[in-house]
Design a protein around this nucleic acid. Structure first.
Lengths: 339, 339
DNA sequence: CTGTTAGCGCCTTCAA
DNA sequence: TTGAAGGCGCTAACAG
């Protein structure tokens, strides 16, 4: 039952631990015959090297801590998969944790990760609290923010971040709807504590003001942007009646909620009402949904994030890493129509 | 940059490592004043105990390895959350990995987990390969199967498992549809390699035969039970035409795909066609879906699984753990109608 | 090519 | 109440 160790193998092979270690790690300087004998022994007895001991001695673990809000949100589930791939490609593994930057006990998660001596921490968050939080830890471990840091917090030292250009995304959304002929639109699901949301909204309003069309904003005061939140918001809207011709949703899950409510109220989309989402989660592409949305370059995001974090970890001197900004793309599908 | 250690604290406090260790772990036999001084020092300098070293010395990690098929499937995403909660309640953490029991390189995942000296491994799978796979590892580490083990594999030694009674579920599904007056139904999405699917299907057919109604089965030969698989299957069905009055789907994601296809073909559910799912994923409850389905007691499953695994780990002698069988419940919503 | 030694950070006897 | 010593399993530096 007790796991077999390098010492056991050494005894069996009649060599020292060091030789076994060398053989296992493919290091040079072991006679072919000896190596063969050792490896065979390892296989026979199901030897697995103790990664704890190895990491302890090597002073690195090959583990990347990843803190994200909610795996039930397909956006984050997809992101976690992409991150895992990117990390794996570099011989590392992900240590996934749930946690919100705004939670008072979020530091426990960080402590846990640091306790495990992860080689870096990815925080997926667009909360305003995220930057100060990371700043508290960046001296102890390489960190990286995935999400929009509030601009007031880009004060020195700047924290490494990979961000989607939400401001531009908001603008693109507004321009698109305007181009289709919409002049009155509802912006639904804005969460003021989420800076990504705030930027999208701001970009949207900027263009609306410039082009001169009216926007009514319905904020989401719940902490989560899930389908139900969108549903309830839209329900309230439909119940009270509305004059607008289009809805821009703060994100796709909210848009899916709008779709639910619209079905219930027999409002046909896009015939009676256009709907625009944000994020391009996989559900948005389903044949009976075909949500027009602003796509995040998720694969690029994951790749850039992991690359940036690990290169940070590689260099001992932690030098300033400039934030990386990626652009969203408008993906026209079936929920917006030309007026 | 180098993390601070117990030794550093000891030097600062003018005591030995042993005392610091005792203070940190709340062990008795440390003078109150000394303890206070040590803990303050730890807090001031942001000391985090090295969990690697601790685990190495303690010969246990408090980590539970969890291998599951696909976080993008809401069923598994939800399950992972419940498992995490259950594990956390007991002071442990989850080490999440993706992996299919039928993958040829699945043993790498096991090796990785064992290398990290996890205290136990949860395998979420209904593949026929899962039991033999676990049997290979159960002597080295406590394991537990979440999913239906094929009966032929319940030979000795039996592997610990937590299972939903899929056979009963299939029966309940058939009885329910029959009770509503359906006499011709399509069973859609069966994956023959998935023993959970096979049992559901078998239970369904048993009852159909006994009650005397006809079932046409449409199998899913792709490896995944996702929405798209259901969509394509249903599309083919609708395209060719059908006489049946109800569809039983192998699982909810497949049912969602059927819903997509039905919308496309303007087949209204449940007016023209009843639809029954399996699993009760969160999407099934959405207001514009309201899928009638057989609910898995997911919270109970997670709780039972973690409890069973950890109690296995607790007792050194690994004694036989009887498989745990939980019953599904029929959840009538809006996609099945009385004929 | 191989063995010896020391140390990674922590915990746990055994003495004092 | 405290300290010294040894070990958890592995790696790396230095000898031979």
């Amino acid at each position: 039952m007790e796991p077999i160790t390098i010492k056991d193998i050494a005894r069996m092979a009649g060599v020292s631990c060091a030789t076994v270690s060398r053989a296992i790690n493919g290091a040079s300087g072991v006679e072919a015959g000896t190596r063969e004998r050792i490896l065979t022994l390892c296989r026979q007895h199901g030897y697995r090297r103790n990664l704890l001991a190895r990491s302890l001695s090597a002073r690195k673990t090959g583990l990347i801590g990843c803190i994200l809000p909610d795996l039930n949100n397909p956006l984050f589930a997809e992101l976690s998969l992409l991150l895992e791939q990117a990390v794996r490609q570099r011989g590392c593994h992900l240590l996934l944790c749930h946690g919100l930057a705004e939670d008072p006990d979020i530091s426990q998660v960080f402590d846990y990760l640091i306790g495990h001596r992860v080689d870096g921490i990815l925080l997926v968050s667009s909360s305003r609290q995220a930057p100060p939080l990371l700043r508290r830890y960046m001296s102890r471990v390489p960190v990286l923010l995935l999400g929009s840091p509030a601009p007031e917090s880009i004060s020195q030292p700047s924290i490494p971040a990979v961000t989607v250009d939400d401001l531009a995304g908001g603008r693109m959304a507004a321009e698109y709807l305007y181009g289709l002929g919409h002049r009155r639109v509802v912006y639904i699901g804005l969460r003021l504590h989420n800076h990504s949301h705030v930027l999208r909204h701001r970009g949207f309003l900027d263009v609306a003001r410039r082009l001169g069309f009216s926007v009514r904003t319905l904020s989401n005061s719940t902490g989560l942007s899930n389908i139900m939140a969108g549903y309830h918001l839209a329900r309230a809207l439909f119940f009270d009646g509305f004059q607008e011709t289009a809805i821009a949703a703060a994100c796709d899950t909210v848009a899916l909620g709008v779709l639910s409510a619209a079905a219930e109220f027999h409002i046909s989309i896009p015939e009676e009402l256009s709907l625009l989402g944000f994020d391009n989660i996989s559900y948005a592409a389903l044949p009976n949904i075909r949500l027009t949305t602003l796509a995040q370059p998720s694969a690029d995001i994951a790749e850039a994030a992991v690359h940036s974090l690990l290169s940070q970890a590689a260099q001992s001197a932690m030098q300033q890493v400039p934030p990386i900004l990626l652009s969203p793309t408008l993906l026209p599908r079936s929920t917006c129509r030309q007026l």
